[in-house]
Amino acid sequence: MSALLDHLPEFWQGLVVTLQMTAASFAGAAAVGLVIVAMRVGPVPVLRAVATVYVETLQNLPLLVLLVLAVFGLPEIGLKAGLTTTAVVVIALYEGAYIAEALRSGVNAISAGQGEAARALGLTFGQSLRHVVLPQALRTVVQPIGNIFIALTMNTSLAAAVGVVELTAAANRVNLLEAQPIPIFVGAGLAYAAIAACAGFVTGRLERRLAVAR
């Protein structure tokens, strides 16, 4: 236990990095997901194809491979950014594919008549997506998106493998000094569990608040 308490500042530092990465990459993933789903359900064949290829590619590669590729590959072609920034961007692009798929299932759950009614009123495709279809789609996929948020939180720990000192890397470093893996990693695990529990609480509240009578 003292192994944990003696190193609280290091854990705290790691936790802060994890939280920052989670917030930034989730915001990025949400933006990516919205753009991709708009392309994918839209009327332009080229954009649909691009979005489909994007989703299939990113969903079918392990995040760790993408992280390693980006961290070691990008500098080779002259793109240099900080480790944490690179990791955040990669995680956002990767999880964005999942968010796009969750949103697409939400769009499919909304009856076609909603979009038809919007377009029949003179709204453009983009307007009907923004004001009518997506707000309803989003409400039906609050829970899956909450799950993606939790998965994303856990996935930030993969950044440890490319040298970002977030919570898991911090725990690992403390363990190298103290050699007490059980309290140290149980402690780190509890911190992740606390973040996930918060996310679950928020999605539950959101789901009830946004419920639409049908």
Binding site: G113, Q114, A213
Partner: peptide, 8 residues
């Protein structure tokens, strides 16, 4: 429309 299609 037959099914009204009001924005829910």
């Amino acid at each position: 429309f037959q099914s009204f299609n009001l924005f829910q």
